[in-house]
C-alpha cells in the first residue's frame, strides 16, 4: 500500500469538521507512517527555540497544556499529529494544521469564546480553535523534548 492517494466519499450532509478531524487525525497519521515519516500522537509547542512534544492518552490534557504554554509565549507547532524528520543536525518536528482542538472547559479556562465547530474525539467533545498567524509556528523546528502526560503504563 503506497498511500499515494486518499479517496474520500462522504455521505450527503456529512459534517465537514468531523470529516476534517478524521482526515487530519488518524488518516494523516497512518498516511505519514505509510510514507515512512515518523509521527507522534501529541501536541508540539516551541519552548526557547526548540520543539517540545507532549504525548499521552486521549483526555490527558495535551492540547490543554499546549494552550496554557501558548499563553506563556510559546508558539504552537502541532495538535494531535506531530510528523518528524531526521536531518544531519538532528530531529525536527514539522508544522501541522494550524488549529487546536479544545474542550469547552479548556476554552472557558483560557477565556476563549466557545463558538468554533465541534466534533467528538475518541473520548470527549472538542471545539476547533483556529490559531492566529502569530500564535503558530509554520516552519520545522529542532526537536528538543518529549513529555509524557498521564499515568505510567503498567501493563
Amino acid at each position: 500500500m503506497s498511500c499515494a492517494r486518499i479517496t474520500v466519499a462522504p455521505h450527503a450532509g456529512a459534517d465537514r469538521w468531523k470529516l476534517a478531524n478524521l482526515l487530519l487525525g488518524a488518516v494523516t497519521g497512518v498516511t505519514l507512517m505509510q510514507r515512512s515519516v515518523p509521527t507522534l500522537h501529541g501536541c508540539a509547542v516551541e519552548v526557547d527555540g526548540s520543539a517540545v512534544v507532549m504525548c499521552g492518552p486521549s483526555g490527558a490534557g495535551k492540547s490543554t497544556l499546549a494552550m496554557l504554554l501558548h499563553r506563556r509565549g510559546c508558539r504552537i507547532l502541532d495538535d494531535n499529529i506531530v510528523p518528524l524528520r531526521r536531518t544531519p543536525a538532528g530531529w525536527e518536528a514539522l508544522p501541522g494544521s494550524g488549529f487546536l482542538r479544545l474542550t469547552k472547559e479548556t476554552m472557558t479556562l483560557v477565556r476563549q469564546s466557545v463558538g468554533g465547530p465541534a466534533f467528538a474525539s475518541p473520548s470527549v467533545l472538542k471545539h476547533v480553535h483556529v490559531l492566529d498567524d502569530d500564535a503558530r509556528l509554520a516552519s520545522p523546528l529542532r526537536l528538543g523534548r518529549v513529555l509524557w502526560i498521564g499515568p505510567v503504563p503498567t501493563c
Partner: peptide, 8 residues
Amino acid sequence: QVMHLGHP
C-alpha cells in the same frame, strides 16, 4: 529526554 509529568 522523555520527561514523565504524571497527571496535572
